[in-house]
């Protein structure tokens, strides 16, 4: 019993639920008040850039070679991420609308989709679409990667859209309906434009999470950033150096985008709305 009381996991249960819950694995969003020159973000971001710079300048072999080997992988990573986020947004919008639909069958389909997809690891989904379904439909590596990540992240996006739509006061829909608008007109002209402002920051976070998760596609023979690093490492046996560069590039990208999201959030908080 004595042991249990001091168990940190046990203690956490006593802490009241936080008002803001980050659904994805958290990205480093700088909090207001720690934004000095020595903020965690500044140390991480400029530190990573500095380390990368020093390595390339003072140890051109192999670091400059590695750095010049990976750019096409970077383009693939970006391509896969941007395409997947685009399709995930479309899937998420419709699945999110389905989640709040009053039509039982639509609601059920959307909810089952979200539950099923969120219950299966992305890596398993990638294998499933590329290898398991590959028995019938042969997709190229990048196509399978984009498809799997769109479907997976579509489920998370659906929850963001659902929460965003439900965060708009009920009176907005009532006012629109009272004016004679149909439900879909009200959704398009009144609810969704307001929702977009609310969900921009969480969508930004999903984008960052997806950027990181896109490294999983390297196992489908997609020549993304990680794959290119692995290729360099396996031919040169410079494992430490290769993966150091890869890690630093991911870190710089992720921190850069997380700062963008944080600025967006700050701006939304200040103005309430973006007119």
């Amino acid at each position: 019993m004595e042991q249990k009381k001091t168990d940190p996991g046990q203690e956490e249960e006593l802490i009241p639920l936080p008002t803001h819950i980050n659904v994805t694995d958290g990205t480093l969003i700088p909090q207001k008040g720690e934004q000095g020159a020595l903020s965690a973000w500044n140390i991480s971001f400029f530190g990573a850039l500095a380390v990368l710079g020093i390595l390339v300048i003072f140890f051109p072999d192999p670091y400059r070679k590695i750095l010049s080997f990976v750019p096409d992988g970077l383009m693939v990573t970006f391509g896969v991420t941007v395409s997947a986020i685009f399709f995930a947004l479309i899937i998420g919008l419709f699945a999110g609308l389905g989640r709040i639909s009053q039509i039982t069958i639509v609601n059920r389909i959307a909810t089952v989709y979200v539950e099923v997809i969120r219950g299966i690891p992305l890596l398993v989904q990638l294998f499933y679409i590329y290898y398991a379904l590959g028995n019938w439909v042969k997709l190229s590596g990048p196509a399978a990667a984009i498809l799997a990540m769109s479907i997976c992240y579509g489920a998370y996006m659906a929850e963001i859209f659902r929460a965003g739509i439900q965060s708009i006061p009920k009176g907005q829909m009532e006012a629109a309906l009272a004016l004679g608008l149909s439900r879909s007109q009200a959704m398009r002209k009144v609810i969704l434009p307001q929702t977009i402002k609310v969900i921009l920051p969480p969508i930004g976070n999903e984008f960052i999470a997806l950027l990181k998760d896109s490294s999983l596609v390297s196992i489908l023979a997609v020549a993304d950033l990680l794959r290119r690093g692995r290729e360099y490492a396996s031919t040169s046996f410079r494992y430490f150096e290769s993966y150091t560069v890869i890690a630093l590039i991911y870190l710089v990208m992720t921190l850069f985008f997380s700062r963008l999201v944080a600025m967006m959030e700050e701006r939304l908080r200040h103005r309430g709305t973006l007119h």
């Binding site: 006061p169 009176g171 907005q172 009532e174 006012a175 629109a176 309906l177 009272a178 004016l179 004679g180 608008l181 149909s182 009144v190 434009p193 307001q194 402002k197 309430g272 709305t273 007119h275």
Partner: peptide
């Protein structure tokens, strides 16, 4: 009902103007 609502104006306690 939409036809009917067109002809029935409503004003709410909380205004419910569209903020965007």
């Amino acid at each position: 009902i939409r036809q009917i609502r067109e002809e029935v104006g409503m004003v709410f306690q909380s205004f419910n103007l569209f903020p965007h």
